[in-house]
Each structure stands twice: as structure tokens, then as C-alpha cells.
Design a protein around this nucleic acid. Structure first.
Lengths: 207, 207
DNA sequence: GGCAACTTTGCAGATTCGGCAAGTTGCGGT
DNA sequence: ACCGCAACTTGCCGAATCTGCAAAGTTGCC
């Protein structure tokens, strides 16, 4: 989390983690999930395969790590929003902040068409679906805690915070997917506002 | 799907599938996920390990198979609801029907305390979280299709059907979890009505 | 009865997973 | 500056999983 305040040790760990995750993503986008072995990812990141296992339990986990970090960033951002702010406004803002941080497309791949195509293939990979969901679920726990805190409810007793957290997670998934696929492209901000607006309105049927 | 109309062949396949899934669940509840090998599950169901792999790609898949089937049943039930019915009523009813079918606790384990305890441990298993979510996600595709059909929207273009499907999936997860943990126990019906009611109301903050 | 389609199964090779012990390196105390 | 501890990396190895392939056993249908 804190890329600044931390010893060399901690920094290096983060670097390896990110290097591994990114290597996993890049190779998967380029070759397809099945054509990437852990060995390749480790080599790409300059560590041993055994070290890979120290960081992630599987290929999927590594690939989804950035997704996971972003979700946690959003949860963290939510805690920072003023308590007086209506909850859906707060969530929308937190999501915007979280998405603003992580660049999903580092380096020079920004407008690369084949990269985008590979990305779409990757997120469509059935074996990764569960992994993405799992990452979201892990973050949802933090969400739920943040929401419980804000609304004075109890995570253990009340359904409310977990329900909102789950719904937000689902919404983020849909937004991410739609953003990736939409033709013509839509801005993340517009998508987020649209989706959270619908949620706050009780998901009325469109007509 | 059709346990009736089908040859002996199809019936046997379903039986094996269910036997495997249930063996996986039972052994996991009793011993814990890490102490169950595919070999054990296959033996329990009276087939070879190779056959296990013909049905499921992993232990996790086998364990969540029933969960998965139920989610699909709910999606199917939704299609049967009258088109005029308000959407949240239809979804609530479909969920009630879907849950009514699958007995999560066959045999004589119904009120068994240690069984319940094992179940809680099982659903808390991190390695299975993703699996559960994945099963839900697979069903969500059918949900989205059903909702799109009902509301005259387009799954590919509109965000609405996927958003609702995702939200419903999240809601079902929360309900299942709450139902399993709630002390004192709450009825599924009450939980479902509560949760879907909140969703339809735009998830207002409790006070 | 007999053929065609489907399912089960054993086997082998590739890959992944996780414990263990040895080697390295950052961090803090003296 | 020095030293010892704790953390991290790594290689090695065995257990477990996954998958293709071909043989053997079943089922459905004429």
C-alpha cells in the first residue's frame, strides 16, 4: 500500500509483486492463458518459480492482483469520504478515486489495438472468472467493514453492509466489463455514475 | 436438467454427477478441504479418479455444483414468471422457488450440529470463495438473458440486465451466508424478501 | 443380434503445489 | 562499524492434479 514509507525490504517486495503480476498479465494477453507457464512469468520478472509461489498461489491470482489492489484502494478511499455525504455519493466518489490511481495499461500499450483485444480475451477466460470474483470478494470484506462503520451497523448481525458491499462489487465488475467492451468507448466516470445512480434508484425497469 | 424425460444413459450421468458432488461436499465438511483427495471423492462415488475429471475440473467445481445448479434453477424459474409482474417481485418469487427445490442437507444431517459447523467452515474456505463466485457468475449470464428478455433490453448493449443479474447474484450470496450463520436461524423466505426489498428501495441507509 | 455412439477407465507426461533446509540480505541494537 | 536476528529467495523433492489417448465396457436403436 504505502509505496513511500517503508524500508528497502518492503519496497522490493512490492516491486516483485507488481513485476510478477504484470508479467503474468502481459504474457497472458500476448499468448493466452494456457500458453503461459509459471516458469515463464517468474523468468520475466527475474525470480525463481519457487518465489512466484511465495507471492501467489496460482497464475490466476497473479493476474488478478492489480484488480484486487484497485478494489481495496476503493474500499480505503471510501473510509476517507466525509461521514455526512450520502452513501451512494461517497461510494461513487471512492470508485472514481480508486480507478484514477491504477493505470490498467502501463507502458506504451495504451492505444494498442491488439493489446485491447488480448485483454478482452483474457477477462473472458473462464478459468479467470472465478479469480476475478474472488479478488472482488476479498475486497468486499473491507467494503463491508467500511460501510458498517459509516452507517453504524454491525457486519456480523446486519445484512445491510454486506449486501451493499456485494452489490458494489457486482457493479464494479459490470462497469469494468462494459468499459472494456463498449463500442464506441465510454468514459469510466460516466459508466460509474450511471450504474451507481441506477442502484440508488432501486434499479427501476427501463422502458 | 430433466431428471424425468431422458434415457437411462442421461439419468445415470446425472446420478454420477450428483453422487460426486455430494461425496465432495460430505468429505469436505467432515475432514476439511485439504484432507480430501480427488481419489477419495471418486471412491466414495464408486467411480475412478479419471471419471471424476470427466465431470469436474477440480475439487472446488464438484463442491459448488449443487450451488451452481440452484442458481441456474432460479434463472430458469424467472423465465416462467408472468411478464406483467414487477421485476423485483418476479425475482423474489423465482429465488423462493429455486431454493425450495434443492435440499442443501440431504439424508439425516438436517439438524446435526457438527455438520452445520463443518458447512460453515467449508463456505469460509478461501479456496472455495472463488469457486462459489464463479458458479454464481456462470448463472448470472442466464439471469442477464432472462432479464433482458423480460425488459426488452439488449444484453450486449445495455448495462441494465447485467447489472441486475450481478446484483441478484450478490444478494443470493449474502442471503446464503446469512442464512448459514444467523443465530437464531432465520427463514430463507424472510431473508430473501428483506434483501430484495432493500434492493428495490435503492438500499437506503438504515438509521 | 449387432452396429454406432457414448461413457468409463488406466496410463503416461506435463504442470502445479507446498514443505524443508541452505544461502542471502535488510534492519536494528550495541 | 559490527553483529545477530528475522525475512526473503531459492533449489530440491515428493504429492497431487490435469489432460490426451486408446482400450474396454454400456446403452440406444434398427
Amino acid at each position: 500500500m504505502d509505496t513511500d514509507r517503508a524500508g528497502l525490504r518492503e519496497r522490493k517486495k512490492q516491486e516483485t509483486r507488481i513485476a510478477l503480476s504484470w508479467a503474468a498479465i502481459r504474457l497472458t494477453v500476448e499468448r493466452g492463458l494456457d500458453n503461459v507457464r509459471i516458469e515463464d512469468i517468474a523468468a520475466e520478472a527475474g525470480v525463481s518459480t519457487r518465489t512466484f509461489s511465495n507471492y501467489f498461489g496460482s497464475k490466476g491470482e497473479a493476474i488478478v492482483a492489480r484488480h484486487h489492489d484497485r478494489a481495496r484502494a476503493i474500499a480505503a478511499a471510501l473510509r476517507e469520504r466525509p461521514a455526512a455525504e450520502p452513501i451512494w455519493d461517497a461510494i461513487t466518489q471512492a470508485a472514481l478515486e480508486g480507478f484514477a490511481l491504477g493505470q490498467p495499461v502501463p507502458q506504451g500499450h495504451a492505444a494498442d489495438q491488439s493489446w485491447l483485444e488480448g485483454l478482452r480475451l483474457m477477462v473472458a477466460e473462464p478459468a479467470l472468472q472465478g479469480e476475478f470474483q474472488k479478488a472482488g470478494a476479498a475486497a468486499e470484506a473491507e467494503f463491508a467493514a467500511a460501510i458498517a462503520e459509516r452507517t453504524g451497523t454491525d457486519v456480523a448481525q446486519d445484512v445491510y453492509p454486506r449486501l451493499v458491499a456485494g452489490v458494489v462489487g457486482a457493479a464494479l465488475n459490470v462497469v469494468t466489463q462494459q468499459w472494456l467492451v463498449a463500442e464506441p468507448p465510454q468514459s469510466l466516470e460516466a459508466l460509474l455514475r450511471d450504474v451507481f445512480g441506477r442502484l440508488a434508484a432501486g434499479l427501476p425497469e427501463p422502458h
